[in-house]
Amino acid sequence: MHKSAYGIVFWGVLRRESLRFIYQRSRFFSALVRPLLWLLVFAAGFRSVLGIAILPPYETYITYEQYIAPGLMAMILLFNGMQSSLSMVYDREMGSMKVLLMSPLPRGYLLFTKVLASALVALPQVYTFLVIAWFLGIQPDWFGYVTVLPSLLLTGILVASLGLILASLIKQLENFAGVMNFVVFPMFFMSSALYPLWRMRESSEWLYWVCLWNPFTHAVELIRFSLHSKFNLDAIIILAPVTLILMLLAIWSFDPQRGLSGRLLKSKS
């Protein structure tokens, strides 16, 4: 197979994911409404309860809205990752996944394109949120909109990989509600998305450690720093290998010849 075929396949998969996203307009609106509700309603209610001390990367006192904005950006990526996981379960049930896996390119590459396309589709959603958030007073330096991009992409790949692993474990679409309760909500709430970890530590030492071990915490912190054009080496050191491991695991788990997905196919036969 010619080398250019790899690029063609990637663009094909990205185009398909984008088209599906465009056709499912409600998905776009719900992806935006959710974080905006948190920003407008939740933050308004809690801003006086959760005073935010000066903590890096901020150099002065900030409003609670400013604090949770990076967490909400990560939330968009997280929900998009779970949405693409749901799509993959649907694709598997509808047979579209089989069509992809019949491509003459290596299956590892095909699944990688699926993960990357899922992460890329989430980016316009995050930037749309940032545009609206600008009018609501969340106004980072303009250069922050550029420096945050790699962090968003890395987080997108992390959650899309997690989504692919979950999709390989889930036998039926009906079981997907459990993912929300057992994966998405704990991942989001047990992170620094809504409150700084020192606050968590004041309430519970063990919960603080759970939050610290949660990769999503480091994704939020990476986004927070990079949105203010600052580099968070600690977050990168943790996040990059975790993302790589999850991606490899996702590729392994969804290859029907080897992974968990194959076991599901066989049990259906």
Binding site: A5, V9, R16, L19, S96, L100, L105
Partner: peptide, 18 residues
């Protein structure tokens, strides 16, 4: 893919065939 048109389905297949 039910959400896509006939043309889009065929185009996608061509792409994944490189």
């Amino acid at each position: 893919d039910l959400d896509l048109t006939i043309y889009e389905n065929l185009r996608y297949h061509c792409a994944i065939q490189g």
